[in-house]
Amino acid sequence: MAQRLTIKDLSLQYSASEPRALSSLSLDVEAGSCCAIIGPTGAGKSTLLQCLAGTMRRHHPESLATGQIQFGETRFNGVPDHVLFPIAGLVLQDPYVQISGVRETVFDEVLFTLENLGTIPQDPRQTILSILQRLGIDHLADRKPTSLSGGETQRVALAAILIAQPSLLLLDEPTTALDSNAQDKLRFILRSLRGRTTVLLTDTQIDFALSPDSSNVRAFKLDVDPKTRLPATGSWLRKHSA
């Protein structure tokens, strides 16, 4: 079930001696809606997603965070100290590394997630094929996952996360390697998730989030202070400003 995501005054340093990677960020994303975080490199987009997925403290134990993250009824002071999967699922920017490389077919690749969680349903075939169908890749079910194109690989990576039914879906720069046709498919997928999953995606360009076809996507801009080159607090963008 989709849940509301609230971030209050979140600041983060990778270590005490480093400058802030996130600076007093506040953000409110309604349950089941889609929010695009737009900003240049260094604005803290990927850092924010790592904080929300719960990998930040695990990979950078020396990091310092203040503020709050609240997802549904669960509240974290600072950032979570454990990976939140399957509550939150993050799809990385490079889809190729997200493919395990240890399964021979797309079907088994998606099943791999369920094996890890220890929650294989009675009829995994039906469950997995319905996810692949929703993402328009059911025809690839028996293909080798490492032999697919960038757009196809990204949808397999997405299927491998969605199969766990996360309440919060995090997509790190999902449009980077996609042509316009594949971007249309991504828009379609995001629309199909409306109401079911809260989605947060990042992008360096505002085009995708603000295009009329992305009517369900709200855009939040993270800026970098031109003088200090440090992240500044962000603000919502309005559609007509595109």
Binding site: T55, V83, V97, S100, E115, N116, L117, G118, I161, A164
Partner: peptide
């Protein structure tokens, strides 16, 4: 990146369901 990706898919070196 691969290690992160595995963790993000629930893989944490612990007993899991048999395939």
């Amino acid at each position: 990146e691969r290690g992160t990706a595995l963790e993000l898919r629930g893989f944490l070196s612990r007993p899991v369901a048999s395939r």
